[in-house]
Design a protein around this nucleic acid. Structure first.
Length: 353
DNA sequence: CAAACGTGGCT
DNA sequence: TAGCCAAGTTT
């Protein structure tokens, strides 16, 4: 399809999205921030986080200078927390090694923490008019359908073929504005017309040439991810409570909820009771309602236990240090707390006292 | 290179 | 409802 890019650019100009919060700017900082947040995350989810970050950290220098805990607290709830740590590191690298200005080339961008090939292309095309293709979920879906690309796009072989195809479709001599429109068009087509469930082929500029549309295979393309059973893990969480405050513990930097503040955990009931005693609680440990939380790759059954504590007569364990903190339930916002733990504590806040 | 890595929206 | 998956990157 020799006129793929021209058709896409024309479609985007007329029917694409033009008023998202991170559009209508060439500020690499704002574009970068949005692109990181939008990785594996829907637009509607990102919008309030993007606004919060921009208000608190108006430029890359402000973000670089912030304490890591502040960045994590602001990111809490968005998920994939490695993104937040890389975001912070990236800001510091840009300030310390690039004089506070994002590099303009795809290759240099892709060397920065948290910026891979697709995000680098997005930033380079939106901020600098570079001729580089993205390859996100939207593009994979559009390419699979329009060109009839078979196979699960998460598979390396298929993904490589799609990168090659996507590169070949780039507009050859386009202005900066056209390059931005092309990249945005790829996303918009996938996000608004060529959606997973019921694609609106009637309004699609590629309908007459689209393999999936012509053959009625919209449902089979792109090829679905192979099904895998999700294992279940189980954990006991300690709600050590002193009046309106609970004790939180810093999680290790990597692994699930890496770098967030969460409730102390144990692998079984007895171990949790022992931890409660070690912290200095001499009261009873009582069961709260169990619940489960589903991640992408496993299900977590959570057994919360409540124990009373009195810091007034408590021991050294009552003191805050780098990895433990007593937090008022009204003040959870200033700590990066995992979403389900936050929900648990918030519901407790309503029912206690 | 397959697996790890969150959460919420949608069907 | 339970399953699928979204503006992917890192290890």
């Amino acid at each position: 399809m020799p006129d793929f890019s021209a058709r896409l650019i024309a479609w985007q100009r007329q029917h694409g999205r033009h008023d998202l919060p991170w559009q209508n700017t060439r500020d690499p900082y704002r574009i970068w921030l949005s692109e990181i947040m939008l990785q594996q995350t829907q637009v509607s989810t990102v919008i309030p986080y993007y606004a919060k970050f921009l208000a608190r950290f108006p430029d890359v220098a402000a973000l670089a200078a912030a304490p890591s805990d502040d960045v994590m607290a602001l990111w809490a709830g968005l998920g994939y927390y490695t993104r937040a740590r890389n975001l912070h590191r990236c800001a510091q690298v840009v300030v310390e090694r690039h004089g506070g200005a994002f590099p303009a080339s795809v290759d240099e961008l892709a060397e920065l923490p948290g910026i891979g090939r697709s995000t680098a292309a997005a930033i380079a095309s939106f901020a600098f008019g570079a001729r580089a293709t993205i390859l996100d979920g939207n593009v994979k879906r559009v390419l699979a359908r329009v060109f009839g690309v078979e196979g699960f796009p998460g598979e390396k072989k298929v993904e490589n073929a799609m990168w090659t195809l996507a590169e070949s479709l780039l507009p050859s001599n386009a202005s900066n504005a056209e390059v931005s429109g092309y990249t945005q068009g790829l996303m918009d087509l996938g996000a608004t017309l060529c959606v997973r469930g019921k694609p609106d082929c009637a309004r699609c500029p590629f309908a007459p040439d689209c393999v999936a549309n012509v053959t009625g295979r919209q449902r089979e393309l792109p090829t679905a991810r192979p099904k895998k059973a999700v294992p279940t893990r189980r954990t006991w969480m300690l709600v050590l409570r002193d009046g309106n405050a609970v004790m939180l513990e810093r999680r290790p930097p990597s692994g699930i909820w890496g770098g967030l503040w969460s409730l102390p955990e144990a692998a079984d009931e007895a171990s949790l009771a022992e931890r409660a005693r070690a912290f200095g609680s001499d009261g009873e440990v009582s069961a709260l309602a169990p619940f489960s939380h589903v991640f992408t790759h496993f299900k977590l059954d959570i057994e919360p236990r409540l124990a009373a504590f009195d810091r007034g007569v408590g021991a050294l364990a009552a003191l805050n240090d780098a990895d433990t903190a007593w937090v008022a339930l009204d003040d959870l916002d200033s700590f990066g707390v995992p979403a389900p733990v936050r929900k648990l504590l918030t519901s407790l806040h309503g029912s206690l006292i």
